Deep mutational scan, measured.
Amino acid sequence: MEVRTIKVFTTVDNINLHTQVVDMSMTYGQQFGPTYLDGADVTKIKPHNSHEGKTFYVLPNDDTLRVEAFEYYHTTDPSFLGRYMSALNHTKKWKYPQVNGLTSIKWADNNCYLATALLTLQQIELKFNPPALQDAYYRARAGEAANFCALILAYCNKTVGELGDVRETMSYLFQHANLDSCKRVLNVVCKTCGQQQTTLKGVEAVMYMGTLSYEQFKKGVQIPCTCGKQATKYLVQQESPFVMMSAPPAQYELKHGTFTCASEYTGNYQCGHYKHITSKETLYCIDGALLTKSSEYKGPITDVFYKENSYTTTIK
């Protein structure tokens, strides 16, 4: 009895394709271990004539594949690729409408935090270190965002349907971005203890939790000093293409032309909904596939993004 075979390709990165001759009487799992086709788990399936010449994702289970996976995804987590594939199996079914010149995501599976993050990423200057993220990001900007969303979920250790947080998501993504040249110098002034300067680099240099107003941050924000008295913390120097200011959701007025974009969060910790506000020729609110415009805006804002380049204080 002759062994019926077909020729397929296996890959971990969709760049390096490895030619395989597979036995049609055995499952993919018996031949390769966990195997995925377009995100779908085909591990328990036997090869079919229609699979001839198709590319299958496999887990990096030998040295060659491990090197290829690390170079593309910059992670050695053995569960990463499987999590990416199972997320992709959902995100490829989502709709990605162009809204006001940006790629958004039609609401499904509690994905409003991903839509808000995706919209924000198209408006701030950011370059990702893992080629996987950078490639998928370019495709997302062009309207094909399924891979990018699935990668975000995998890097953030999230599953489809789980509630997510924009600030946490951005923080994970910033860790995989090139923020080497970003720098922030802060000064804390206390009447009792004097003053202390701190220099922050990388992710810490672009994120701040405690106030939404970048102007206020430049002037000074009140913080408790270690001595128990009130101290003032203010920005001395900022070198970065953008800054992200966050605070627990509270009524906040966004003035046209003073910011790049913002995240609105309605609801409580267990259950809520994100919308995205962007400042173009007027203010726009993007909620999944829905767009509304207004000249002014007041609502429960939790993150505001500002364009920056270089700032030095005039406070002496």
Rank of each mutant, 00 (worst) to 15 (best):
G267E: 15
C271A: 10
L88T: 07
K307L: 10
V188R: 10
V304H: 05
K54Q: 14
A154H: 03
N49L: 15
Q230I: 13
Q270C: 15
V42G: 04
A231I: 02
Q98P: 08
R83I: 06
E204P: 14
Y208G: 09
V12H: 05
H176L: 13
L151A: 03
T226M: 09
G228N: 00
F70D: 06
A145V: 04
P241W: 03
L126V: 13
E162C: 01
G257W: 04
E2A: 12
V304L: 03
D180Y: 10
T302R: 05
L133G: 05
L173C: 06
T314H: 15
Q197R: 11
K233G: 10
N268K: 04
Y113Q: 03
A205M: 02
K54D: 12
G257P: 01
K106A: 14
C261A: 04
L179E: 01
Y57K: 05
K280M: 13
S181N: 12
D41M: 09
Y137C: 06
T199F: 06
G202H: 03
A132K: 11
L102R: 12
V8C: 13
A140C: 09
Y96Q: 04
G202R: 03
M170E: 01
Q222R: 12
E71M: 06
T120Y: 05
Q222W: 06
T292P: 03
K46R: 13
F128P: 08
Y57E: 00
L291A: 13
K106S: 14
A154M: 03
E215I: 01
H51M: 10
A132C: 07
F80M: 02
V8P: 07
E253N: 10
V160K: 07
Q134K: 10
I286W: 04
Q216W: 02
Q238A: 01
A115L: 08
T313G: 06
Y265T: 03
H176A: 05
R4V: 11
I286N: 00
M245A: 03
A231V: 02
V188D: 02
Y208M: 07
Q98F: 15
R139K: 15
L114A: 01
L212I: 07
Q123G: 04
W107P: 05
R167C: 05
T260V: 15
L254F: 00
G39Q: 09
Y36S: 03
T91W: 01
I152N: 03
H48C: 10
Q216T: 07
F9I: 06
V243Y: 01
H256S: 10
A108W: 04
L114D: 01
L119A: 01
T211Y: 01
C227Y: 00
G299N: 02
R4D: 13
T76V: 13
A247P: 06
Q195W: 10
N178E: 10
C112W: 01
Y265F: 15
L37R: 13
C285S: 09
T266Q: 10
Q251T: 14
K219W: 04
T312R: 15
A250N: 09
V304M: 00
L283Y: 04
A115R: 04
E52V: 12
L37H: 13
Q238H: 06
S86D: 14
K106L: 09
I277M: 11
Q222E: 12
N16G: 07
K191M: 08
Y84H: 13
M85R: 05
G164N: 01
D165L: 04
K158H: 04
R83H: 01
E52I: 11
D135M: 09
V203M: 12
V22K: 10
L126E: 02
E71Y: 05
T116N: 01
M245N: 07
C190E: 05
H74T: 08
I45F: 15
L119T: 02
A140V: 13
E125N: 09
Y72M: 10
N111C: 09
R66S: 11
G288L: 02
N14V: 02
I6S: 07
K95C: 10
G33E: 04
A115W: 01
Y155W: 08
E125W: 02
L290R: 11
T55E: 06
Y96A: 05
S171V: 10
S263A: 12
S50D: 13
K275E: 00
E68K: 11
H48K: 14
Y57H: 11
E68F: 06
Y297M: 06
F217R: 02
T302E: 02
N147R: 10
P249M: 04
D287W: 05
I105R: 04
A142Y: 07
M170A: 03
V243W: 02
Y265E: 00
L65T: 14
I301V: 10
A146Y: 01
I277P: 01
F56A: 05
V21Q: 12
N100Y: 09
Q175F: 03
L235H: 00
A108M: 04
T27S: 10
H276R: 00
A40G: 13
N147T: 13
A140P: 01
L65Y: 08
K54A: 15
K158P: 01
I152F: 01
L119Q: 02
F80N: 05
D62Q: 09
I301W: 11
A87W: 10
A115V: 01
I277Y: 05
T64H: 10
G82C: 14
N157W: 01
A132Y: 03
Q123L: 05
V58C: 09
G33S: 05
S279W: 04
A136Y: 08
Y284W: 13
H18I: 03
Q175E: 05
K127M: 10
T159D: 09
K46W: 15
A142D: 14
S240I: 01
